[in-house]
Design a protein around this nucleic acid. Structure first.
Length: 426
RNA sequence: GGAGAGCUGUCCGAGAGGUCGAAGGAGCACGAUUGGAAAUCGUGUAGACGGUUACCGCUGUCUCAAGGGUUCGAAUCCCUUGCUCUCCGCCA
């Protein structure tokens, strides 16, 4: 959510910035009028309440002195009715204003490149060498099925499409990657490990920006009105919802493993094979709560932490600076990290590192105090995948495949794989 | 799932229709005292949203789990929801 006071005084400017990201502003045209109406109603009702308060004290005094207060009480009864009316009107106006605000996307940072589509994202660096195979390389779904380490078919029977069973060395590899990434982030990068709930309530989903606009992307538990988390970002960011943090404790950094659930509404027909687009996948997520003035250096740091995982795994990747059209609803600035995927013969997103500035902090009411008795300010929040595990498995299988269909295990993972050097057919 | 108890400020805890943003402690901050500390004493110690303002500030409204209701007036009475605790049942 944007800052209401800022919006009030810079509405024209904000409109320009949001048009820059391709947002249709017609839905927000009512903002100024609603905002003005809100303040008018607030002024009126507060004035009456003030009157009621003073007169009520007067009534108390008269009664104490055994004097007649009936006239005042009658008068206040009317005032009470009027207040009730105004309050109802005010509530209605505030509700409309809030709904509007909750659907207004974040303002892009000035460094965000202009663009109309994902074509305009800017590649800012690449790392590693794209492998060249002296044989016909296979996609990971074929490799994995041959090795009997993934079973998409039976998952289809047991649940439905876009699910999988990990099996044997495949399951162990998934587990190894989770442990490896968590250990790296906690031991080398200073994160505190966390395992969050996989279901959250509506308030949490609204806090991080998945709701109200993107409800169809999430799985919902109807009986409780809970949502399966699409990413650990949701529970972990909301961990500090409605809190005032101690400025000295910032930055606060959490690394959380969780399963993630996405309905993939609107993705029918895309990436139908393999691990790339599943309804359920594992991910290690990094979340940072920082001071506003630090958030852009923090974003570089966070992105570096995600890149480090790929470097240690020896997987070639590139980093993209997301253009104005591809920023997503909540981010002010976003880098995507894409790993090389031989089966696609291109780079494919494996991590997304974002600076939300105060956008989530305002929604979720996460603040901090610089000094003991200082005024609370909103923190800036950031998060990034470090990394999506399923896609990492896909990349490992494809990039480390051998001619005989076996998979070489990168050195850093071997301690987590019982010392095993390769995955091969039994 | 059944029965019961509770939810007040950073924490503990009073409060039972008007004088309550809320007694009293503790904690914390600052000051006095001290060679320094402990102890002691003094002072201070919410947030949101408006108005006003160059700034310090001043001022109004709201907030005692959340939302609604009764009343001239609600922390206090009523209703709904959430959460916590105890006992029973079921259970990884």
């Amino acid at each position: 959510m944007l800052d209401m006071k800022y919006l009030r005084s810079h509405f024209a400017e904000v409109k320009e910035r949001l048009k820059f990201r391709g947002e249709d502003m017609s839905a927000f045209e009512d903002f100024e009028e609603l905002e003005k109406k809100r303040r008018e109603l607030l002024g009126q009702t507060e004035e009456l309440k003030s009157k009621r308060n003073t007169v009520s004290q007067e009534v108390a005094r008269l009664k104490k002195e055994k004097q007649d207060a009936d006239a005042l009480i009658a008068e206040m009864r009317e005032v009470g009715e009027k207040i009730k009316e105004l309050d109802a009107d005010l509530r209605d106006t505030e509700e409309k204003l809030e709904q509007l605000m909750l659907r207004m996307p974040n303002i892009p940072h000035e460094s965000v490149p202009a663009g109309d589509s994902e074509e305009d994202n800017v590649e800012i660096r690449t790392w590693g060498n794209v492998p060249e195979f002296g044989f016909e390389a296979k996609p990971h779904w074929d490799l994995a099925t041959d090795l009997d380490i993934l079973d998409f078919e039976r998952a289809g029977k047991v649940t439905g499409s876009r699910f999988t069973f990990y099996k044997g060395a495949g399951s162990k590899l998934e587990r190894a990657l989770i442990s490896f990434m968590l250990d790296l982030h906690t031991e080398e990068h200073g994160y505190t490990e966390m395992m969050p709930p996989y279901m959250v309530n509506r308030t949490s989903m609204t806090g991080t920006g998945q709701l109200p606009k993107f409800e169809e992307d999430a799985f919902r538990i109807e009986a409780e009105d809970y949502f399966l988390i699409p990413t650990a970002e949701v529970p972990v960011t909301n961990y500090h919802r409605d809190e005032i943090l101690n400025g000295e404790d910032l930055p606060i950094a959490y690394a959380a493993y969780s399963a993630c659930f996405r309905s993939e509404a609107g993705s029918a027909g895309r990436d139908t094979r393999g691990l790339i687009r599943q309804h359920q996948f594992n991910k290690v997520e990094m979340v940072r709560f920082v001071k506003p003035e630090d958030s852009y250096t923090e974003l570089e740091k966070l992105t570096g932490h995600a890149e480090k995982v790929l470097q240690l795994l020896g997987l070639p990747y590139r980093v993209l600076d997301m253009c104005s059209a591809d920023l997503g609803f909540t981010a002010a600035k976003k880098y995507d990290i894409e790993v090389w995927l031989p089966s696609y013969n291109e780079y494919k997103e494996i991590s997304s590192c974002s600076n939300f500035e105060g956008f989530q902090a305002r929604r979720a009411n996460i603040r901090f105090r610089r000094e003991k008795n200082g005024k609370p300010e909103h923190v800036h929040t950031l998060n990034g995948s470090g990394l999506a595990i399923g896609r990492t498995v896909a990349a490992l299988l494809e990039n480390y495949q051998q001619e005989d269909g076996s998979i070489l295990i990168p050195e850093v993972l071997r301690p987590y794989m019982g010392g095993k050097e390769k995955i091969e057919k039994k």
